[in-house]
Design a protein around this nucleic acid. Structure first.
Lengths: 355, 355
DNA sequence: CTGAAAGCGCTTACAG
DNA sequence: CTGAAAGCGCTTACAG
């Protein structure tokens, strides 16, 4: 009994038909009689036939694999991105090859090169400031702030900021401290812009950039939040849950009650946001949708290339008309301004937190 | 001018030699004269030759790709694992295809199937309780607690627990609360066993399982740590940084000073452990080494299969003699028992925290 | 040291 | 509706 991996020709021999017919039957392409299709399907299943991707790839020129290029897998947002892309790609029948540049811009080019060598049909790139993607000889979808020109798909970070700002304004916050990591980030600038807009004219804001604080105070230095709160800040709106966590524990560690004395909010709904006390109010981006759009655009371009030959080669896969994917406000604690005698001040904490 | 992707035959034509010679020269296999090798190398580079993985895969039967099977990408430990595996695989000349089963055990089989269809040469599996990996028709390396029998590579979780327990004992802690997620986890049981051993006979311990607490109190329910501390617990040793974070904020939120009144420790050195106040003392596993061992074992088996033919087919890649990879204690705050009048009680907090 | 030839497993016009 | 044949790009014995 032949125990080797069954191939197309074995099915053909078993049934006494040609490999062409088997191929056509299995792919549903050629006109094969329904009965034959059925018999071929049955024996293929019986033999445990698994098509050879190598054979198919060599013949068709497509690998059926998409590359996912990440500036740094250690980035806490990565799991969401990877999961969403993997899911969208698998649904579209593609595999996902990962390439990590471990935080170094220079390695990104190299990582992209590795993917090209592996014959990916297209790739999703999560860029870092300074990334150049000219070198890609395949369709590319970029996930980033829409401020970036080109073939980009992104959540609407500005609108997310505006919603968060509006939420804080409604709760009565008029003196808000904004904390971001780096002013060089388009995403963070969008969020800041939205936050200020949402808070409105009546609010006083100050912006802290961790990058700058740490340049002076060293990595992990205190953010000096206690004094800010003492001097009147009632809400700390951070641009990422990681910063929110840092702020939360710095405040709590100094004996300042959150959310009773000051409110802390973040962005991204990272895993720990729901397990800390109090749960962090945050802004979740719809990564599923972002991933679906990116993968669909890639697949469309790949298909078009296949049909259209060399014609529309390295055009970006995402048209300029791509809608910005909305974000969703996740309220885990929401506290009105304390001690200001405002009648509309509210103070409630969500009881049920997801684990 | 021909702009299409150059292949082996184009180099051969350009130089007026045979494709066999070009192939041999580029791979360094056959005996080709040094000068010819040099010329071939040069024109290959000049033409921007990139070998076709499909052609090679079809011919050799190897895809040059390893699969990484994860129970849930959302798991906070995933970035470390993925980064380490990607790095080890890339160094060995392999690509990494990811497969996520999104937390559902049933999907793991399906995910493994997708990888097989894609022709991976081997795979690294991070199992979930209940995972069966019999279905794999390629070499498999499993990353898990060494308690699991089979072809496993893992950090020495028990020893890590013992070190952490010893650390706490030296600081004078004699009444320690242990918190894990689920008693069904081998890894967690190893860590618990090590912790108890490290704390020694003189210590009183109680173990809390979050899974059980939440079955009664609902997801995200308070852990009741305040009472534990009031009744004499001086250290909370958790089995993961995620739990440590939950404990830390629950205590701080209730006005209990950490680490002055109670010490909190974790496991895994997840990203936020260094940014919270106080920084979490934790146990880091050497994922780089775990990944290197797993990938090396896989590659060895793949190579052996190639040479030895069908002989030692689906043997596990990891011999029984694999050393357990050590863990490393990361001390970010370490506080002796407060208010117990012990002369050896220490109280210091690390100043420098990595961001 | 170099080359001619076969073949990995598939798909795709094309002919019947 | 079905089949014979070519060819995707590479590597590997084998012959010279």
């Amino acid at each position: 009994m032949d125990r080797s991996k069954p191939k197309l020709s074995r099915i053909a021999e078993t049934l006494g038909v040609s490999v062409a017919t088997v191929s056509n039957a299995l792919s549903g392409k050629g006109r094969v009689s329904p009965e034959l299709v059925e018999r071929i399907r049955a024996t293929a299943a019986e033999l445990g036939y698994v098509p050879s991707v190598a054979g198919r790839a060599l013949r068709t020129g497509r690998s059926g694999v998409l590359g996912l290029v990440l500036p740094d897998i250690a980035n806490p947002l990565f799991p969401q991105i990877a999961q969403a892309i993997e899911h969208a790609a698998a649904s579209a029948g593609y595999g996902v090859l990962i390439a990590d540049s471990r935080g170094e811009t220079a390695m990104q080019t190299e990582a992209i090169g590795r993917l090209i060598e592996r014959g990916v049909d297209g790739m999703v790139v999560v860029p870092r400031r300074g990334t150049r993607i000219v070198e890609a000889s395949c369709p590319v979808a970029v996930i980033d702030s829409p401020s970036t020109p080109g073939n980009t798909v992104a959540a609407d970070h500005w609108e997310g900021g505006r919603q968060m700002g509006g939420h804080l304004r409604e709760l009565g916050h008029r003196n808000v401290l904004l904390i971001g990591h780096s002013p060089a980030s388009n995403v963070q600038n969008d969020r800041i812009g939205g936050l200020k807009s949402g808070l409105g004219r009546g609010a006083v804001t100050e912006t802290l950039w961790i990058e700058k604080l740490e340049a002076a105070g060293g990595a992990g230095c205190p953010l000096g939040l206690v004094e800010k709160v003492r001097s009147g800040v009632t809400a700390v709106a951070t641009l990422s849950d990681l910063i929110a966590l840092r702020a939360l524990t710095e405040l709590q560690g100094a004996g300042i009650a959150v959310p009773q004395a000051v409110s802390v909010s973040g962005f991204d709904d990272l895993i720990w946001s729901s397990v800390v006390t109090p749960g962090l109010t945050t802004m979740r981006m719809d990564m599923e949708t972002v991933a679906e759009i990116a993968v669909a655009a890639l697949v469309d371009t790949i298909e078009a290339e296949r049909r259209g030959g060399e014609e529309q080669k390295i055009l970006g896969p995402v048209s300029a008309a791509v809608p910005k994917v909305p974000m969703e406000l996740v309220i885990r604690h929401s506290t009105g301004v304390a001690g200001m005698g405002l009648s509309q001040a509210r103070n409630r904490t969500e009881g049920e937190l997801a684990s």
